[in-house]
């Protein structure tokens, strides 16, 4: 089988998605036999961009002219472009304040007034600028999901998208329901599953790191949380942690 040519990189991000790939210790040696890491600065030297890639796997949101330049290059050079992780798909943590403060205010409060500010705009998903062929969500993504993706790409196809919420897996594990039974601010009902409900399994609420599930009943979640006495501000703040815009009136 021909080894597929891959580009793997990050934009505005923490490298966690790329690290997740390197954390597949058992699969990595075999995986490396099936692909050519033409552009993967985190783990390879001598990277080149001016080739045709079978796929570019891109972590992170877009927030600088340099991010945008690299994204366009990779889109043009790749058969498939994969949005890898929550930041690439929804903006992620760097975007949480997009609706409440301007980029300039944020930059000034970190880099000081009167100083030269880095060039930067509000972090947004890849799809705001380019077409995206496949996605792996999560902050961080599950190892199994990035493996599924790479194996599918090697087979010339794309992995199926998941469309069930965190609650599905959480209930099947018979975890205590933190939302209904402990009245905590759990986002499980509106957040995409596939993580085996990791957080609720340890008794910690779903913080929503995988972004919205398809057809999320956002309005119902909002009502449930309001009924439990949480303030609208607090709810919106928590919902925005990984994705700044939600349609709070949406019912599925």
């Amino acid at each position: 089988m021909r080894r597929m040519k891959l580009a793997i990189t990050g934009l505005t991000a923490c490298s966690g998605c790329q690290l997740t790939l390197l954390n597949c210790e058992d699969e990595l040696p075999e995986l490396l036999g099936h692909c050519e890491l033409v552009y993967f600065p985190l783990a390879e030297s001598g990277n080149v961009l001016d080739v045709q890639f079978d796929a570019a796997i891109v972590e992170g949101a877009v927030s600088t002219p340099k991010d945008l330049e690299l994204l366009f290059k990779l889109r043009n050079a790749s058969t498939h472009l994969v949005a890898y992780g929550t930041c690439a798909l929804f903006g992620g943590v760097a975007a949480m304040n997009n609706r409440v403060s301007t980029r300039r205010e944020l930059l000034r409060s970190v880099f000081g007034a009167g100083e030269k500010l880095p060039e930067s705009f509000p972090p947004v998903p890849l799809a705001n600028f380019v077409s995206v062929d496949a996605a792996v969500t999560g902050c961080p993504p599950e190892k199994q999901e990035i493996m599924e993706l790479v194996v599918a790409l090697a087979a010339g196809t794309l992995p199926p998208a998941r469309s069930y919420p965190v609650c599905t897996e959480c209930r099947s594990h018979e975890n205590l329901c933190l939302l209904l039974e402990k009245r905590e601010l759990c986002l499980g009902p509106v957040v995409q599953g596939g993580c085996n409900a990791r957080c609720p399994a340890t008794g910690i609420v779903c913080e929503g790191c995988r972004g919205p599930v398809r057809e999320a009943n956002v309005a119902q979640e909002l009502e449930l949380l309001l009924e439990r006495g949480f303030g609208r501000d607090e709810i919106e703040r928590r919902m925005s942690r990984f994705k700044p815009e939600w349609d709070y009136g949406k019912r599925s």
């Binding site: 927030s63 340099k66 760097a94 409060s109 970190v110 930067s120 928590r238």
Partner: peptide, 16 residues
């Protein structure tokens, strides 16, 4: 790319 965490944390609760 700067992600400006200290600015993002202002106004958030201690638990977050």
């Amino acid at each position: 790319s700067p992600r400006l965490f200290e600015a993002l944390l202002l106004g958030k609760s201690f638990a977050e």
